[in-house]
Design a protein around this nucleic acid. Structure first.
Lengths: 242, 242
DNA sequence: CGCGTGTTTGAAGGCGCTCAACCGCTGTGG
DNA sequence: CCACAGCGGTTGAGCGCCTTCAAACACGCG
C-alpha cells in the first residue's frame, strides 16, 4: 500500500491524501490551499444501510462526497408507490446545488462513508474555482445520460430485459474491465430485491422470478442472495435488450 | 409591442435584441461584446417537424438555442423500440457539451426556430464567462430533476395516470398560471399520438383509449386531434397519481 | 426454540399489448 | 367532381406478461 507521490503532497491535508474524491472526484479541481480550507469545515461520517441522508421537501444545507458505499435516490407517490431514480457510487458528489428544498429522498443502500461540508462552503468553492463548477457540470451531464438510458429501460423493456440491464449496470460499476471484455464477473449486489424492484419498476416477485430464470438457464450463479456470479457478460448483455 | 429598454441596448446585436434566449436563456449570461462575438458566428434556422437535428453516435460539432417550437430527444433499441427521453422548449439550450459523440437522437417535434453556433464557440464562451457555465449547470440540473420525475411516471404509474401526467406537464409549459391556479386551459399538443406513446412507454392505442376516457368522463375536451381543452386542471392533476 | 426479515414459489386475475378493422381528413389525379 | 390512396386516430376482441394474493422457505438472532 504505497501512497501516490503527488507534487507538494505535503501541502495536502492528511485526510485528503489518500482520498478517492481528490483523485477521481470533485476535489481534484481544488488547489492545495483550497483543500486545506475545505477540509477544515468538512467531516467524515460512517452511515448504516437504510439511514436517510435527506428527505423529500427538507432543506438542503449540506453536501457530501461519497467515499465508499452506494446511495439510492428515491421518489414516492402519495399512495406509497416508490421508484429509485438514481444510484450513486464513490467518488460521486451528493447533493443538489441551487435549490433550497430537496425533491427526492437519499438513503444509504449499503454501509456508507461520506465526507460532508456545509452549503456555504460549496457556494464559496463554486465562486472561487471555475474547475470546481466544471466538475459539477460534468457529473450532472453524466447523471443525465444515465437517467435517460434508464428511462428506456423503464419505458420499453420487458421484465427479463430489465433485470439483465440492472445486473449489467452493477457489474460495470464494480468490475469495469470484466464487463468490457465480456468475461465473467463476481460481485455483491448493493441492493435488496425490494430495492431492485423499485429501481426497475417491477414487483419483488417478478425480480425474484427473473433472477432464478437467469440462474436455471446458466447465465448467472447465485450464492447468499446477495452474491452473484455472471458467467459470461456477453451472454447477459444479449438479454438486456441493448 | 415595445422592446425592452436595457442599458446600452444599442450595443447589442439586432438579432439578439428581442431574443428570448437573451432574457430567459443562456445568452443572458453574456456581456454585450460577447453577444456580438457570438452573433457573428451564429445563424438562425427554421426547421420542419420530423427533421433530425442530430443522430445517435454522430459527431457533436454544433449547439443551439431553441427560439420557438419543441424538440424531442429519443433513444432507440436495436429492435426498433423507441423511447422519448426528453422534451425541450424555448429558450432551452440544445446540445451535449464535453462529449464527442451523441448518445441520443434530437428531432423537431413541431415547426422549429433555432439559433446555432459551432462547438469551438461554445468552448470559448465556457472558458471566458463563468456565468455561462453556471447557466449550463442550472439547466442540466433542472433537466435531471425532470428526468427523475418522469422515471417515476414510467416505472410506477398506470396508463391513465401516465396520460394525465403528460397533459399536466404540457399544460404547465404552455399555460403556467392556469396550471398553477387549477383553472381551465386550452392548447395544442406538440406531439402526435405516436410520440405521446413513445414518451409514456405505451402503445398508440392505449394512449388513444385513455384520452377518450378522459373526454367521456368530462375532464378534457378534444377538438382537431391536436387541440385539447382541460376543463379543470385540479381534476386532471388528481388523476395523474402525483 | 420462536420470531422477524428477506426471498422464493405457486395460482389466479387484470392491465396493457397485439392484431385488425374502421373512421375522418387531405391531397392527388383521372 | 368524384374516386382513391395515404396518414393519423379510434375502436374492438383476444391474449399474454406482470401483478396480486398467499404460502412456504432460509437464515440470523434473541
Amino acid at each position: 500500500m504505497n501512497l501516490r507521490q503527488d507534487i507538494h503532497n505535503s501541502d495536502i491535508p492528511v485526510l485528503c491524501q489518500a482520498c478517492e474524491a481528490r483523485h477521481r472526484g470533485l476535489c481534484g479541481a481544488l488547489e492545495p490551499k483550497q483543500l486545506v480550507a475545505l477540509s477544515r469545515t468538512s467531516s467524515r461520517h460512517r452511515i448504516h444501510p437504510g439511514a436517510e441522508l435527506i428527505g423529500d421537501s427538507e432543506n438542503i444545507d449540506s453536501f457530501s462526497n461519497i467515499l465508499s458505499g452506494v446511495v439510492k435516490l428515491t421518489k414516492t407517490l402519495s399512495d406509497g408507490r416508490q421508484q429509485i431514480v438514481g444510484l450513486q457510487f464513490a467518488p460521486d458528489f451528493l447533493g443538489r446545488p441551487f435549490r433550497s428544498e430537496s425533491v427526492i429522498n437519499a438513503q444509504a443502500a449499503t454501509e456508507l462513508s461520506l465526507c460532508s461540508f456545509p452549503k456555504s462552503v460549496l457556494e464559496r468553492m463554486i465562486h472561487e474555482s471555475p474547475g470546481f463548477e466544471r466538475r459539477l457540470l460534468r457529473q450532472a451531464l453524466n447523471e443525465l445520460d444515465e437517467a435517460r438510458d434508464w428511462m428506456v429501460t423503464l419505458g420499453r423493456k420487458t421484465a427479463g430485459e430489465k433485470v439483465a440491464s440492472f445486473l449489467v449496470r452493477i457489474a460495470r460499476n464494480i468490475d469495469p474491465e470484466a464487463a468490457a471484455n465480456g468475461a465473467s464477473a463476481t460481485f455483491d449486489l448493493p441492493l435488496t430485491r425490494a430495492d431492485i424492484a423499485d429501481f426497475l419498476g417491477l414487483t419483488i416477485e417478478t425480480v425474484s422470478r427473473q433472477l432464478t430464470k437467469l440462474r436455471t438457464e446458466g447465465v448467472i450463479g447465485i450464492e447468499n442472495n446477495r452474491r452473484v456470479n455472471v458467467h459470461n457478460m456477453e451472454r447477459l448483455e444479449a438479454r438486456s435488450g441493448r
